[in-house]
């Protein structure tokens, strides 16, 4: 019995998963997301590290991260802060440089992405040998919590238009809960120039263009527990601009 459990705990040691957590003013959420990550990685026995990339949060996110590092160990929690708020793309480049895993998981640190899905991502990747596995809110048991009708309509409408125009072969283009082979992510961030929602969409569209394979896992998206979620007219306009840019260039 003991030996069998031992095997489960040490399986697949050759694979290591680096979780990139870009943060800005997430002092409430960071300890919780780290706790959940430690819990689910611990239970599934995969080898992992968490890389916190804090962009100079004025609310003391970094001090909280330092405390977490003391609790969970410097081999599990890596702090790679930056002095000021820079783009998401550069946060990934920065994180990858310090990642020692051969797989990289990107997710939001605001608890909208639940770490319980990560073991499913990993199983899915192994099952099909996929270059990237994307969480999807639009398929199977996937879904959202905390969205009103307007938000759902915009989300479904935007997704439909993107599917018609780009035919990307993935159902959730703007989701940002994904697992990548490290070299695939490196290659993609190098090529992607968009900002905001469009960045995630460009990543998956370019992945298809470069011939990478994509697997999907249904996820439940629980909208921000702490802090404000934003979707205004500005976001919609920049989304449409980005969509048309991708339409004309990919």
């Amino acid at each position: 019995m003991a030996s069998r459990r031992g095997n489960a705990k040490t399986r697949e040691q050759s694979d290591k998963y680096s979780v990139l957590l870009p943060t800005y003013n997430e002092r409430e959420n960071l300890p919780l997301i780290v706790w959940l990550l430690v819990k689910y990685f611990g239970e599934s026995g995969f080898n992992y590290e968490i890389i916190v990339i804090d962009d100079g949060s004025p609310d003391g996110t970094l001090q909280i991260a330092e405390q977490l590092q003391k609790i969970y160990g410097a081999d599990k929690i890596l702090l790679r802060p930056r002095a000021q708020k820079l783009g998401l793309g550069t946060a990934y480049i920065h994180g990858i440089k310090h990642a020692s895993g051969n797989f990289v998981i990107i997710m939001d640190a605001d608890l909208s992405h639940h770490p319980k899905f990560i073991p499913q991502f990993i199983e899915k990747q192994k099952e099909g040998g996929f270059d990237l596995v994307s969480g999807t809110r639009y398929r199977g048991d996937g879904g959202v919590y905390g969205w009103d009708l307007r938000r759902k309509l915009i989300s479904r409408g935007a997704n439909f238009i993107s599917q018609v125009l780009l035919r990307p072969g993935a159902s959730d283009l703007t989701g940002s809960f994904r697992l990548y082979k490290k070299e695939v992510l490196e290659k993609l961030v190098e090529q992607c120039v968009s900002k905001g929602y469009v960045f995630q969409m460009e990543m998956i569209v370019r992945a298809r263009q470069l011939g990478y394979t994509v697997g999907e896992v249904p996820i439940s998206f629980v909208d921000r527990v702490y802090g404000e979620s934003k979707l205004g007219g500005n976001e919609i306009v920049s989304f449409l601009k980005g969509l048309l840019t991708l339409f004309a260039t990919t």
Binding site: E28, Q67, L68, G143, V222, V225
Partner: peptide, 30 residues
């Protein structure tokens, strides 16, 4: 037919309580 994940939200709330209690025990100062 967009799924409303009520259960996922409840599960998360319960886990947040659990996490806060355990982190406090481990000496985290919020």
């Amino acid at each position: 037919t967009f799924n409303d994940c009520e259960d996922a939200a409840k599960e998360l709330q319960a886990q947040i309580k659990e996490a806060k209690a355990e982190l406090k025990k481990k000496g985290l100062k919020m």
